[in-house]
Design a binder for these strands. Structure first.
Length: 541
RNA sequence: GCGGGUGUAGUUCAAUGGUAGAACAUCAGCUUCCCAAGCUGAAUACGAGGGUUCGAUUCCCUUCACCCGCUCCA
């Protein structure tokens, strides 16, 4: 049986994941990777970097690729100029104002609570609701009737306001009936919840020097767009990839490492001609999904979820999430591993002209958002971030496709997928439950373990030589203690795909056995061929 | 942030207002020629702070963390 408790307990026991600052009681939303975990996560990031960037061949068009394309990397800083976050939209968006209901104990986003004024005789109240737009008027009427203690036949005695307005347009909440409340005036004042971690530049920094730890790595790419163009001779279409830490002050971290406050992203910003952006969007969606299955996530546990139009962020023409059926979720529910977003030209234009207005009606060209003084609310850099096609002479602002993956979520998904229990015989031939982490060999923290079958007759010496040779090529583990069966099982829990055993035959014939983690089959190879054989097996996955 | 539950060894669990046990895991030694064997020995725990008490792991309060449900997830 695969259960989250067993996976969490194995992660702790074997050194994949620990709670941060555990000896002091821990901190919510922060997790440390242990000796095995750090290898797993690094292998995952390396696989991403290699598969997406360094091993991509920009000279050939592969299947389903609209054209050839180039890929380069970047490593930008966590702390950036404060204006970056104002133009990116995070500054405005992350300063959510929340209100609590004293009666229902629920919390709402201030600007998301809608409602209508309702009049009955001399009394006028504002009935708030979280109902969908279609049911909103019905819900308001029903709850207003209940509040005024009216029967259905008196429905026409109350008057509903024609306009649905959000709570932040009201002057006070005194006459407001909360979305889940039965009495008036139960809502607290709106309070700011800053989802970005604030910090100060300089030892004597004041309010003007406040900036933030990045909540996404993407902006570091956008602000370096021109630098990359000017320095690397890449041409559109091309992508810039980056792996790095991001920080979000989540209100409710939950579900092991799934929603952490400090996490690592693997992001690509792919720049293309606006006319081809839909093709590239589809290409990256499929390409990224295939990547997860190629490393071992079962396609039964993965879904591609296209966002509905109303769910899309203001800049996005289309967004799809790659989601995984994590064991901590209810049956049939999935958690996000990666989002692939079509961001249009929102980011580059915002960093050029100033933050664009998210309230621009859909379908219209976005305009710079203006402040009360009629000037741009957040000034852009003023730098020209457009691209000129040398062949056609056309100058345009590229559109952006953003495949944005969570490295920690990926690592967690692969851990969950890998966990399995099967039956293996013990020394006496009785079937015993075997816990085994069936990690793809590319991701496995330890690639191979080297065991002398017994700790005598010169076997340890031969084994140590082999260990030394393998270590030059990959992460290997040496163990000579206890029964060999136990050593196999220990490696099963660590996810080590291959165990190399040195026996009497090894001494005479210069051969060793390789035991396969999943099949338990052993095959004999010459010691001279061992490095090539193991390397071949790992790379064939 | 709300409601409910849980915090005892590395893990999974006991017991107890007065010396905290087990299993597995770990370490050392012996044994061992292929899948958690056996024998001997060892180390290791009451989340933190405060209160009540002669004495608190146990009762009370606070806090922190984890789990479940709600909320949130740009």
């Amino acid at each position: 049986m695969k259960s989250m408790e067993k996976i969490v307990s194995l992660c702790k026991r074997r050194g994949f994941l620990f709670q941060s600052s555990e000896i002091y009681g821990g901190v919510q939303g922060f997790w440390d990777y242990g000796p095995l975990g750090v290898e797993l996560k690094r292998n995952l990031k390396d696989a991403w970097w290699s598969d997406m960037l360094t091993s991509h061949n920009e000279l050939v068009t592969s299947a389903n690729t609209p054209s050839t394309y180039e890929m380069v990397g970047l490593d930008s800083t966590i702390i950036m100029h404060p204006q970056v976050w104002k133009c990116s939209g995070h500054y405005d968006l992350f300063h959510d104002h929340m209100i609590d209901c004293r009666e229902s104990k629920r919390r709402y986003r201030f600007d998301q609570v809608r409602g209508r004024w309702v009049e009955y005789r001399d009394k006028k109240i504002f009935v708030a609701t979280m109902a969908e737009a279609a049911e909103e008027a019905d819900d308001v009427r029903r709850r207003a009737m209940k509040f005024f203690k009216l029967r259905n036949k008196d429905a026409d005695k109350i008057t509903l306001g024609t306009e649905s307005i959000t709570l932040d347009r009201l002057d006070s909440t005194t006459d407001v009936l909360g979305p889940d409340a039965k009495n008036l005036d139960t809502l607290t004042e709106p309070r700011e919840f800053n989802l970005m971690f604030k910090t100060t530049l300089g030892a004597l920094g004041g309010e003007d020097d406040v900036t933030f730890l990045r909540p996404e790595t993407a902006q570091g790419i956008f602000v370096n767009f021109k630098n990359v163009l000017d320095s690397s001779r890449v041409r559109v279409p091309f992508g810039i990839g980056q792996v790095g830490k991001s920080f979000r002050n989540e209100i409710t971290p939950r579900n092991f490492t799934f929603r952490s406050r400090e996490f690592e992203q693997m992001e690509i910003e792919f720049f293309c001609h606006p006319d081809q952006s839909q093709d590239w969007y589809r290409f990256w969606r499929d390409r990224r999904l295939a990547w997860y299955t190629s490393l071992g996530l079962s396609s039964d546990s993965l879904i591609m979820r296209e966002h509905h139009t109303e769910e899309l962020a203001h800049y996005s023409i289309g967004t799809a999430d790659i989601e995984y059926a994590f064991p901590f979720l209810p049956e049939g529910e999935y958690g996000e591993l990666e989002g692939i977003a079509h961001r249009g030209d929102f980011d580059l234009r915002s960093h050029m002209e100033g933050k664009l207005d998210p309230k621009t009606p859909k379908g219209q060209r976005m305009e710079v958002e203006l402040g009360e003084d009629g000037k741009p609310k957040h000034r852009g850099s003023g730098k020209d971030l457009s691209y000129r096609d040398e062949l056609t002479g056309e100058r345009y602002i590229p559109h952006v496709i953003e495949p944005s993956a969570g490295a920690d979520r990926g690592a967690l998904a692969f851990l969950c997928e890998a966990y399995s229990e099967d039956e293996a015989p013990d020394e006496k031939g009785n079937m015993q439950t075997r816990t085994v982490m069936k990690l793809n060999p590319r991701l496995a923290p330890i690639k191979a373990a080297v065991f002398p079958l017994v700790k005598k007759d010169g076997m340890p010496e031969v084994a140590k030589d082999i260990y030394g040779e393998l270590k030059k090529h990959m992460n290997v583990f040496y163990d000579e203690k206890g029964a060999v069966g136990r050593r196999y099982r220990r490696q099963d829990e660590a996810g080590t795909p291959y165990c190399i055993t040195i026996d009497t035959e090894s001494l005479n014939e210069k051969t060793v056995t390789i035991r396969d983690r999943d099949s338990l089959q052993q095959s004999r190879v010459r010691i001279d061929d061992l490095v090539a054989e193991i390397t071949e097996r790992i790379e064939s996955h």
